[in-house]
Nucleic acid binder design. Structure first.
Lengths: 140, 140
DNA sequence: CGATACTAGGCGTATATACACCTATTGCAA
DNA sequence: TTGCAATAGGTGTATATACGCCTAGTATCG
């Protein structure tokens, strides 16, 4: 359990580990953790342009675009025109998307709770704070 | 800079952020951070079977197999037969692979140092410890 | 020794990630 | 107002990730 020499590699391994856990728990709802996070943010942020949404999600614009495709294909969200700017495309949840998110929510909450129980509340809290600070750190 | 409600989503965002930084720094050597980690482990672990290597790298077996393909194609490593078990395939660095890793090493060290300076030594240390503990946590 | 369970790994498929380059549209300044 | 810089997003390409299923080879037990 020695820490990795490489901060990045260690973080990537841990992320794979945790992602597999959440994905497994969300699978009965037909979502993975990335899709769950996208739908959840769209639910609270209402219609939003792709670029602005990418910034909110700390995601590359083109990655977000590709990740939206299966969700749009399955009717969980719409990618429509923006009356105020014809370059922009507005993302919005459909009723099906809201229903899917609502169905997944208790699964996510249970996964979250189980993770915290296994990893420990103090560690969980510390990790959340650290990753938020890392994300806010300008590395360029 | 509020922490994410979802531990997994926060970790994933931070990992994307850090990965982009390391990838940018390693790009002059023609490697990304994942490839750098693979070559480095192979350099120190000598010839090793794919399955055992996947366990060492905390990586899915099939993911590792796919990630090895560009490296094998570029002549940085070989995937050869195991005399002791014909099901197994032994991975080994080529001289080109060793040279590529050696060329990338100072770039990695500089990235590591710059990250630590920006994020802070205490936070860096704490993060490394936490992700190592997370990886060691049984979530199944 | 032969049936069978187990193990190592590949392949098909689907999604995730992001860079470089492109087009369409907008805004601004001469 | 027109010309050009800036912006929004898509596309091509390459790699990353992992599940389910398959084949080949190994080991074990009767």
């Amino acid at each position: 359990m020695l820490p990795d020499r490489c901060s990045c590699h260690g973080l990537r391994k841990a992320t794979r580990h945790l992602t597999q856990f959440y994905d497994l728990r969300l699978a009965p709802a037909g979502l993975n953790i990335g899709q769950y996070a996208l739908l959840g943010r769209l639910a609270s942020r209402g219609p939003i342009a792709l670029g602005a949404f990418a910034a909110v999600m700390a995601m590359d614009r083109t990655t977000l675009g590709r990740n939206l495709q299966p969700l749009e294909r399955d009717g969980l969200l719409t990618v429509g025109p923006d009356p105020a700017d014809r370059r922009s495309r507005l993302l919005a949840l459909t009723p099906e998307g809201q229903a899917r998110f609502a169905a997944a929510r208790p699964l996510w909450a249970a996964a979250q709770q189980d993770f915290e129980a296994r990893f420990g509340p103090d560690r969980t809290q510390a990790l959340r704070l650290l990753v938020a600070e890392l994300l806010a750190t300008d590395l360029a």
